[in-house]
Structures are given as C-alpha cells and as structure tokens.
Design a protein around this nucleic acid. Sequence first.
DNA 1: CCTTTATCTAACGTTTACGATAGATACAAT
DNA 2: ATTGTATCTATCGTAAACGTTAGATAAAGG
Lengths: 154, 154
Amino acid sequence: MSLKYFKIGDVAETLNTTVRTIRYYEEEGLLLPHRTDGGTRLYSEHHVDRLKAILQLAENGFSLDVIGLIANTREACSTGDEGSKKVTEVIDNAISEIDEKINDLNTLRSDLTISRKLVAKCKGCSNKPSSKGCPECPVNQNLGEIEALNLIWE
Amino acid sequence: MSLKYFKIGDVAETLNTTVRTIRYYEEEGLLLPHRTDGGTRLYSEHHVDRLKAILQLAENGFSLDVIGLIANTREACSTGDEGSKKVTEVIDNAISEIDEKINDLNTLRSDLTISRKLVAKCKGCSNKPSSKGCPECPVNQNLGEIEALNLIWE
DNA sequence: CCTTTATCTAACGTTTACGATAGATACAAT
DNA sequence: ATTGTATCTATCGTAAACGTTAGATAAAGG
C-alpha cells in the first residue's frame, strides 16, 4: 500500500509549508520519519496525513505543546487502562477546545457578514454609526444591527 | 445608554486576559479607550465587545496585523467608494479564512471523535494498529476507520 | 488627609516558532 | 565519474506576543 515515500522538499511543497518547519516539528517530537542509509528523511503518505493535521491545529491557534499532547498518546495509551483513560481525557479536552473555536468563528463570521453588507453600501462618510451626520448612510439606517459593527467601527 | 465605564483590571478579568495584553493591543492600534484626566484608561461596553472579538480572532490563529486590518477599516471606508471597496475586500478575505478554519476544525473534530471511541476501549496493548499482535484490541478490529487515527498513532 | 490599591509609562527580558546561513554529505542525472 | 541540486546538522538570528520589573502617579475608602 504505502510503498511510495516522499522527501522533505516534496512534502513541504504539497502541504504548503517549509522544510524548516517540518524539521522543527520533528525536533519537538511531533513526527518521526524514516531515514535512508545516508540520513535523508523519508515520509509515507501516513506521515503526510499526520503532518497535515498537525499543521491545521497549529494554524488554528493550538500551541505545539498541546498538539504534542494530542498527537503523541500512544505510549500513554500503552500503559494500560490508566493510560487509556488519560488519553481520552486529552482528546476530550481537545474536542471541547475545538468546539469553542468553532463557536467563536461562527459568531465572528456572521458579524462580519452583516458588517460587510452595510459597508458595501457606504459612500464614504466618516461618521460613527451613532453620530448624527450623514443620515443617508446605510450604516445609520441599520442601527438595529449595530452590534455586529463592534469590530469594524471604533 | 453606555454610561458605565470599566477600568482595565476589570476588563481583563471579565475577558479572562491580562492587563498587559490589553495595553499591548492598544500599542498595536487595535483599540483606543477613553482616559480620565489623570490618564487612567476607561472602557465602554462597546470597547469590551470589540476587545472580545479581537481576542477571539487572536486565539484562532489570526496575527495582530491581520486583526488590525479587519478591525481598523473605518478610515479606509471614509475615503469614499474606493475605500469602501477595499474594506469589503478585507472583510471577504477574513470570511474565507474563517470558513477554511471552520472546515479544518470540523474534520479534526470528527477524526478525534472516532479515535476517542477506539482508544477508550483499548486495554493497553502497545501495538501499532497495523501490527499483528493483540488481535483482541478494538483498534485492530476497526482498521476501516484507521485513517482517523493518523494523528494519534505514529 | 492618609493609606491602600490600582494604574501609569518605560524599559528590558522571555518564549514560541520558526528564518537564514555555513559547511559537509547525499542523491539523481548525464 | 562528475556535476548540479537537495538534504543533512548545527548554530545563530529574529519577529511576534506578550511577561516582568521599577518608579511614579491616580483613584477609592475610611
């Protein structure tokens, strides 16, 4: 199945990251590729998938320490029932954090969507939404949705 | 309406962050509180809401530079049609990034959910899922879902 | 008014997550 | 065999995002 191996440069390109980043993640114990006799790193598709997940976690604000906790749970699990318990705890925590992030992103998204609609119609009056000037500004005409503008208007 | 003002310590506590972080975000031009004659910073509820959104963006992997682009768009907008165009562009980019993040988090979430189920039943065999040993291990009995285990098993 | 506690500015220190570089070695193609 | 390109280790540098501390001022309570 997994006969094909990739070198670090190809992996970096396909995952849109850098060689240095991949090596750094290895230093931090996040993934361990194979090696040729000469020392060149070889990555299976499996490694690539794992690295992809790691990169996604990193891009979403998880620290490498936390990612390590999530990703390196095999040894912990292999200590028996007690280890397996700890592993599920780590995973549960990660899932809750992910849920929280998804929630935040959803509210931010809808806020920005509303703001976008109003701004798109703005002709450039520099008034705050609450000011009296520029009554024809669509922003002033939609004060009901003004909460969504918190991020946009100072 | 917005008669009540908060001092920086209270804001930090309610938003679960630090005084230093809030001041730093101000240094970076992300929010501008009022001041007493003595110089003490005063935050309206509006400021707090804005800061909350900024913190959420930061926790989700957005750099302060990008957050600044998203949050400080009033001046750009106030330059007329052209400015309003640029602002909507910035917002659109932010929305796409948010969508991508939500997507990533959803796949990570379902991966972890499956992994969690299997690990919870593991009694501590230290074998890789693909190895022959420990045939009674639930992980080995669910190789069909093995892709979800990329992150957990090396 | 006095005292305690919070806030101020300004400066330097720290951690994380890499970037950049040097010099040597490995690999792929001719 | 050679030659160009990629990868290796090791080290130093750096940008972002704060933490920490010092010394001075402000605010709140009695």
